[in-house]
Design a protein around this nucleic acid. Structure first.
Length: 256
DNA sequence: TAAGCGTGGAG
DNA sequence: TCTCCAAGCTT
């Protein structure tokens, strides 16, 4: 849920989610569409599908217990470098480098003296964080958490609170006089308004609200451009976020 | 490797 | 208003 999503928006949804599905087996026993509906407007609904798939994999491969091994975690659908290590570190207390957007920003500033992190680079980012971790396992988990928290609360993207920062006397960026960032720029985010993502979002909102098949006519009311509509719907079908109604008497589209 | 993938809040 | 950005992942 936290992938590319602010913490404050996740918390209430997470609590409701865990009340309904306390274990992976509970989630795996529900249809994937229920997960997509409970996901509601958190964004990137594929994550709900992936989480459901991961729950099924955890039941099949690991007897319903979330694995502790990073490679086993990485093998789960929707679990990447960040999430796998976050689980291994924060749930199991093991020693691995956890690198998220906050960590990358703190390293860029405090260590490299740059105002912003460059584009993410998996191996290099992991190695950079690994070099900062103390050997002691318990201490390493605190450093992992501390780097993330510092980036989330103090060393924030827009207006960092440098005067209140516990690293102010050790920060390379501060020591260099806060030079403007001139390195490689991160990929520009395209406009959402009128994009395919926008149309997909409109269709998904309709599918989540409906408990009977959504017809082509209803989808047609959501967006004027048929070509773009068709492309969005085809994408949702390909992603498994929508399925065709199995009953000929009630044609249309449903959550899986 | 780079593009595609939602949504909403803050400055 | 508009731009940026938010505990990334997959193809």
């Amino acid at each position: 849920m936290l992938q590319q999503t602010p913490v404050v928006r996740v918390i209430p949804r997470l609590e409701a989610w865990l009340e309904r599905w306390p274990t992976p087996a509970d989630l795996a026993a529900s249809p994937p569409g229920d997960a997509v509906r409970a996901w509601d407007n958190l964004g990137y609904p594929r994550r709900a599908l992936w989480l459901h798939a991961a729950a099924m994999q955890i039941v099949e491969r690991h007897g319903g217990a979330v694995p502790r091994d990073v490679d086993a975690l990485l093998a789960l659908t929707g679990i990447g470098d960040y999430t796998a290590r976050a689980v291994a570190v924060f749930s199991f207390g093991d020693r691995h480098p956890v690198v998220d957007t906050n960590t990358r920003r703190v390293i860029a500033r405090a260590v490299l003296g740059q105002g912003q992190p460059g584009p993410p680079h998996g191996r290099r980012d992991l190695a950079a964080m690994d070099a900062l971790l103390p050997d002691d396992v318990a201490e390493s988990t605190v450093v992992n958490a501390g780097m993330m928290e510092l980036g989330a609360v103090v060393c924030v993207a827009r207006t960092p609170l440098c005067d209140a920062c516990p690293l102010r006397d050790a920060c390379a960026w501060r020591a260099a006089g806060y030079p403007a960032y001139d390195g490689p720029t991160k990929a520009i985010q395209k406009a959402y308004e009128g994009s395919d993502r926008h149309v997909r979002g409109l269709i998904m909102r309709e599918l989540r609200a409906a408990h009977t098949p959504v017809t082509d006519a209803e989808i047609a009311t959501l967006w004027p451009d048929q070509t773009q509509r068709d492309r969005a719907l085809a994408g949702l079908l390909a992603d498994g976020l929508a399925v065709r109604s199995p009953t000929p008497d009630a044609p249309g589209y449903l959550l899986p």
